[in-house]
């Protein structure tokens, strides 16, 4: 499997990454090489093999339905790049 420069641009869009035009070509080559290496998997016989998402066959732990975390809004907003009056600032999305 290889990726064309157009596909790289599409994947970068899905991943919300801006790529300068001069990087698209080198990325297409490198990502294609990685996918070619990954293609070895297609030779493995995996009929009837259940997928393994996680090394420990565990289920999600439950806890009592009680408040366990204190409000740390100010500490978390103190490290944000742009806040005002307790809200995070982003470019205008609604005209």
């Amino acid at each position: 499997m290889s990726l064309s420069p157009e596909q790289v641009k599409q994947v970068a869009h899905l991943a919300r990454l801006s790529l300068p035009p001069e990087k698209v070509g080198p990325y297409a080559t490198q990502l294609s090489n990685i996918l070619q290496m990954v293609d070895q998997l297609s030779g493995a016989s995996t009929d009837q093999v259940p997928p393994m998402a996680h090394p420990l066959e565990m289920v999600q732990r439950l806890r009592a339905d009680a408040v366990s975390e204190e409000n740390r809004r100010e500490a978390f907003q103190a490290i944000a790049p742009a806040v005002e009056n307790g809200v995070y600032l982003v470019p205008r999305v609604i005209e």
């Binding site: 990726l3 991943a15 790529l19 990502l31 990685i34 998997l41 297609s42 093999v49 997928p51 393994m52």
Partner: peptide
């Protein structure tokens, strides 16, 4: 950036089974 793009690609519609699900089976 390379790894984010590879990850995005193998999880994207139409490639999920061929890559991600296949890799999870080989993982087992």
């Amino acid at each position: 950036q390379r790894r984010i793009m590879i990850g995005t690609y193998v999880l994207s519609h139409g490639y999920y089974d061929a890559y991600y699900l296949k890799a999870q089976k080989v993982r087992r």
